[in-house]
Each structure stands twice: as C-alpha cells, then as structure tokens.
Amino acid sequence: MSADLAATAPAEMAHDHAHDHAHDHAHDHDHDHDHGHADHGHHAVVENNFMGQPNIKLAMWAFLGSECMFFGSLIGTYFFYHGKALVEPMPDKVFSIGITSISTFLLLMSSLTMALGVDSMKQKKRDMARNYLFLTALLGAAFVGFQVYEFSHFVHLGLKLSTSLFGSTFYVMTGFHGGHVTVGVIWLTILAVLIDKGKLNPVKLPINVEVAGLYWHFVDIVWIVIFTFVYLLEFIQ
C-alpha cells in the first residue's frame, strides 16, 4: 500500500512533466481515466521511466532484443552445420510440409487473435479481450501439440538429439522455440483467468496484456523465420 503510494509520486511528476510533449504515451491517459473508478481502492499506476515510457514495456522490448540474438545464434548454428550430418535420417526425409504448414497457420492466426485481444483491451472491452486471450492460448497449445507429434514422429524415424549434427541443431533450435510457445501459453492462460476473475488492477491491465502480446508476437516471428529458412528451403534447393 505505502509502496504503491510512494511509487505514485514520482510517476505523477514524470507524467506532468511529459504532458507538454504531443506524443505523450497513451497509458498516462489510461491512468487518468481509470483512477476515478478503480474499485480496488489503492493508487496503482503504470510505472513509467523519466521519459514517460512504461518500464514494463521497455523491459519487454529489451528482452526481445536479447531473444533476437539468442534465436539468431541457434538458427545460425543450424545453418552452419546444415548438410554436414553423417547419419540418416536427413532433413528432406523427415520434414512433412503438410503438417508443419498447418501448425504454422495456427501460430500465425494466434498472432492475429492476440493483436485483436490487445486492441479490445485498449477499448476496455475486457470480456472480449479475455476471450481473445483464451483463443490465442488455445491456438498456441495446438501448435505445441503439433510439435510434440512432430518430435515423436522424428524420433520414430530414428532422429534423436544425439543422432547427428542435424538432430542436435534441429531439436535445440525448435525445442527452445516450442519452450517459448509453452511459456507464452501458460502466461496468456493465467492472464485470461485473472481477467475473468477480476483480480487484475484495471489500471495496469492494458499494459500487461500489451506486453504479453509483444512476447507472443515475437514467438510468432521466430517461427516465421524457422519455417521459411529451415523447412521450406529444404524443399526448394
């Protein structure tokens, strides 16, 4: 409680200071609007930095920047060793474009529902946002399901993590991506349940949904790269 109040003062000042700028961020205004009818009784605000940007969004973009390098090196390593595996099965023997394209489509559509969820939240349509978040999590879970099927199918064909350079680099790369999707599914589900139960502070809600959305879209763009460079190029060479 007192910590919240303490946090309010500098944020309020920063807010006033930033107000001169035409491009002052939207969330300060959300704060103004919701402050009056926040039924929780405490003075929660979206904590901004001295330039008026919400810390949590800044942190997420910085995190996603580091994730770019993380996945960049994993995909780069896959390509460095591409075609250097000694033992069967080779990529063109195990990849199934049909199944992978279905899961790719599901993940792409989940990005759309996520964007619609963030949009609904900004318009304060909380129930609609909750539904979109559930739908996004469901599509993400379906994607993970397809990946589990794909992995077990590959293992059945004799490709394991330790089989060859292809197995090692492929499973590490796609496995980390699948792990990210799983984290995203859990995150979105928790968020949707909390929205449903009304446990989240309405002031912080839009930014929380927006930040979860940023993470989710990032997971989607990583898959865009993997699908094109790893799966499709295998068939186009």
């Binding site: 770019c68 090196s73 780069g76």
Partner: peptide, 21 residues
C-alpha cells in the same frame, strides 16, 4: 527507444547469421 532496443540486436543477430552461413 523501442525500435532501438529491438532493431539493433536484430541487426547484430542477422549479421551473426549471415557470417555463420
């Protein structure tokens, strides 16, 4: 600031990727 935070590591990642390939 968001563009900087995201696009500069992305450029580094793309460079690493191209170099490795």
């Amino acid at each position: 600031i968001y563009k900087f935070l995201f696009l500069s590591p992305l450029a580094i990642a793309a460079t690493i990727f191209l170099l490795l390939s």
